[in-house]
Write a protein that binds this DNA or RNA. Structure first.
Lengths: 343, 343
DNA sequence: CTGAAAGCGCTAACAG
DNA sequence: CTGTTAGCGCTTTCAG
């Protein structure tokens, strides 16, 4: 099996058939005789021939590449998602072309233009906000785009998220059932729909019970900023329960409260996070949190995207996937009989 | 700016020039008159034209894609590396095509064949072992391959790692200087060169001082297995210092010792890890560990790979990058005057 | 079922 | 500097 770029014509010559015969052998569902298949396969093996995906892409217009736009990988949620996404896509015969982008807008736009240049068959935008021109440009380039873990105003785009508002509500109900009335919130980056929805659900449910938000700080989904937010929140008039917009920040908040402020959790204050990343289950944190069901998020994302690719005029969908509140050890548990409703 | 696949010919027609003129305008360093540039740019903007990277790749033989093979993303070290790799490559005009593969061999081979089909200009194999046929097949396909964070027997391949043996030695000297004599080791996956080298350096340095390894268990770089390894190691005859082959496992070991066995760190036992992932600095762990300088690993990897792409017959290189022992709080510190040598 | 022929969109000599 | 002319390696009609 030698190689150095073997072409179908060379295989054809060796097999004593036409170049198109070779092509047919490597095209699932083309009509070729048993005999031809055999001859071609032999020749191909001998030369170490493998079809050139790019050439195929040029003529067929299908590159079998999916562009994935990601902003940051610090938050454990993303590596997990990326791994699953890539695996599922691979199984379905696609591959992922990764484009990193800083959260700073504008950048995202350029990145997607680049992506389009590579003739990707579809795009998954994970946790980034798209400008409206951008979505236009994907739409008109006829490249399906689905937003992963971020909602969008543009009704022509599909978006898959977890049920963020509902998750926020669950947290509120849990705190309420636990008897808390001085409840704080540490926000993520306020440009993110996930942040907005989690907060909105949380606050709304609180208010239905006549409880207002006791304190609020912004941590921007960043470790250091979350630490600072925690310090500010506990400088005076501390709340007795706080909802932190994601686990990544919750860890930072917990560490700050415990090791800097010497507090006991959940004795002095209850904390609930969002995501249920692997570290949330580590004994050091043992964080009560709302689970984002990565598997299902990914499965839906891929289904919708591929469906959209094969069938260009399906309607865009916006799907919200519900996740349970995972009760661990950072928030005081309400009476036994009320627990079931949070699962 | 409409689109739906605009070609250079259409731009040419609108601009009143030949198709190749358009091509030249978009080819850095081609000779075109100011005037032509202007006309073409206008027409291109009006039509929303962007060159088709795939077509360019076909004729030029350069796809400007780099295949990246990764096994798992659980260990925080990999997302970090992936992010940096992707960023640096992007800056240099390349993009990353990601291929996931399970650690189970064989799989890796198929994945790389796939990668080759995409006509990637180069391959980065992160923490995976390659079969020798595989490396052959890359070599003969003239696609440069560099191993990231894994050494290789094949002398024709470049490999970038941190100075694992030397890192292991540092840990041993630190323990020795701290007066420990009952020293344990929790190993990673034994097929990994990183694991082997860290252990070899560690054990060798210990033995030079006449100290044998007191106990040893295997954690395979997996959380659950590391926990089990810790339990086994402390069932009887516990060591008073342990080196854990990477941070990811060290966290699991720490949690097991603290929360399951009720031990105090570093009071009852000292622990040192390897990698210095972000979580090592989190107050809950505050782990003393050997840093893998991701930035420099990545920079070298990219430099060597791109150099190899542009200049096909440069010699393969194997580079080891030294990293300091980051002294935090999980290992008792030797006398002040000896500390400097570990930095 | 099979070969011949026509491109996919672009770059790269080659004359001019 | 610019247009013309070949292809890159493959899929896909189109006759047979």
């Amino acid at each position: 099996m030698r190689s150095t770029k073997v072409t179908s014509s060379e295989v054809a010559r060796l097999a004593g058939v036409s170049q198109s015969a070779v092509s047919r052998v490597f095209t699932p569902g083309a009509s070729v005789s048993e005999n031809t298949v055999k001859k071609v396969r032999m020749a191909a093996d001998e030369l170490g021939y493998r079809p050139n995906v790019l050439a195929r892409a040029m003529v067929s217009g299908k590159s079998r590449m999916i562009g994935l736009v990601v902003a940051y990988l610090n938050n454990q949620f993303y590596p997990e998602a990326l791994e699953r996404l890539s695996n599922v896509l691979q199984q379905r015969g696609y591959h992922v072309l990764v484009f990193m982008t800083s959260t700073t807008a504008g950048n995202v736009d350029r990145v997607i233009e680049d992506l389009l240049d590579y003739q990707v068959d579809g795009i998954i935008a994970a946790s980034v906000a798209l400008s409206s021109e951008l979505s236009e440009s994907c739409l008109s380039a006829k490249v399906p785009l689905v937003m992963f873990n971020r909602a969008q105003d543009n009704p022509h785009l599909s978006a898959i998220t977890s049920a963020n508002a509902s998750g926020g509500r669950k947290v509120a109900r849990f705190f309420l059932a636990g008897g808390y009335r001085k409840v704080g919130y540490i926000a993520g980056w306020e440009g993110a729909s996930t942040q907005r929805d989690r907060e909105a659900g949380f606050v709304d449910e609180l208010e239905r019970a006549g409880v207002g938000l006791y304190s609020r700080e912004v941590g921007n989904f960043v470790t250091e900023e979350a630490q600072a937010a925690a310090r500010r929140m506990f400088r005076s008039d501390p709340p007795d329960a706080i909802f932190v917009a994601n686990d990544h920040m919750a860890f930072a908040v917990m560490d700050t409260l415990r090791y800097e402020l010497g507090m006991d959790l959940p004795g002095d204050v209850s904390i609930i996070g969002y995501d249920d990343v692997p570290a949330a289950a580590w004994p050091s944190y043992n964080l009560t949190t709302v689970r984002q069901p990565v598997n299902r998020l990914v499965a839906h994302t891929v289904d919708i995207l591929l469906d959209n690719i094969e069938n260009p005029d399906v309607k865009p969908q916006r799907i919200e996937i519900d996740g349970p509140l995972v009760i661990r050890n950072t928030a005081r548990v309400p009476r036994e009989e009320t627990i079931h409703e949070f699962r």
